[in-house]
Design a protein around this nucleic acid. Structure first.
Lengths: 201, 201
DNA sequence: GTCTATAATACGATAGAC
DNA sequence: GTCTATCGTATTATAGAC
């Protein structure tokens, strides 16, 4: 489990959090992981290989902690599940910061490195679909395409807010409030129209 | 107007669009501008100076084209003005692509280079305030803080969608549709509550 | 699998002529 | 102001011992 290869991938995640994907230096990664540079080349062939495997690692880890909600915790209901799933990404803990930073870097790097795009688009799609499902459970009123569109808006907004937070343009609490309100609005809109159809004059 | 200095700044914008802020190489910039590397150092001192001036240049140019609406064009009304101002940033023209790419890079780079944060935060704030004012004109119902929050949500969403577009995760038209719907929802919500207050049972 | 040592080169920056 | 030539170093990557 905790072999050298994994050590290096974890170290790479930390270095990317500190310096960015494009600021990662093999020498600094070696120091962070406590190994020689040549061992890194032995395991990952070249710098591009390091990046590819690290980004896979980050995507896999993000999946894991998203899925890993404490099953013994008080049930939140569909609305609470959605709020928690999204607000989870706006927290100042080392793990979330690492994931958010690395995810943002992955996306920003993909603009200039077409090789990264396919994996990124696949991971994005999976995330949007999971979110759409949570929205569907929280607002049974709408259609599946409406839920998908809402999921795309909320996850895109989350990415935008996360980058603003990490780049020092807004405080974390402010980002959380804006996202929370947007979630309420996406769900409220559906609920309101249901209410209107059922109850209004 | 079109002196060497400006040539270099325009060339730098193109190189950043192609390679990113962190992918900009002084040698490549020199080739793109058709000058020697030392001339670049003569005008901009060092690489950081190149970047600083180029980002100022980009911010100024974005301001200009945002302000530069054809005054002879058919008046759109407040709602149309808002839509146009935001959707303007999601277009596949060289100038918009350059600005969006560079702006995204500026934000992504600021995560790792605190020197960039202040200018970025200032430019972001100005943009949010302009947007809030447009929202205020388009939906006179709400309060100023509500307009500001809506502006932050819409501009953050725009940044998120723009990055998704540029990184190849969604097609441009799709991004435009999602943003357009979000604008309608932000305005519609205010209008609906006004309508509800005035008219509902 | 892991290291030390080093090759090869890319890159930022400067010197000095015109 | 602009160029050619070059320096010094940071960085990727490899050779070869253990």
């Amino acid at each position: 489990m905790s072999d050298r290869r994994t050590d290096i991938l974890e170290a790479a995640t930390r270095v990317i959090t500190r310096r960015g994907v494009r600021g990662l230096r093999v020498g600094e990664l070696a120091a962070e992981a406590g190994v020689s540079t040549s061992l890194i080349y032995y395991h990952f062939t070249d710098r591009a290989g390091i990046l590819r495997r690290t980004l896979e690692f980050i995507i896999a880890r993000a999946d894991r902690y998203t899925a890993e909600r404490d099953p013994a915790a008080a049930p939140l209901g569909p609305r609470g599940d959605l709020r928690q799933a999204l607000l989870l990404e706006l927290q100042d803990t080392p793990e979330v910061r690492e994931n958010s930073t690395a995810w943002g870097e992955l996306r920003a790097s993909a603009i200039f490195e077409p090789d990264l795009r396919e994996d990124l688009a696949k991971a994005t799609l999976a995330w949007v679909q999971e979110t759409a499902e949570l929205i569907g459970r929280a607002s049974p009123g709408g259609t599946a395409p409406e839920h998908a569109a809402a999921a795309e808006r909320l996850t895109s907004l989350l990415e935008g807010l996360s980058t603003r937070w990490l780049s020092g343009s807004i405080p974390l609490e402010h980002a959380r409030r804006l996202l929370g309100d947007a979630i309420d609005a996406e769900l409220g809109a559906a609920r309101d129209s249901a209410v209107r159809v059922g109850v209004a004059c």
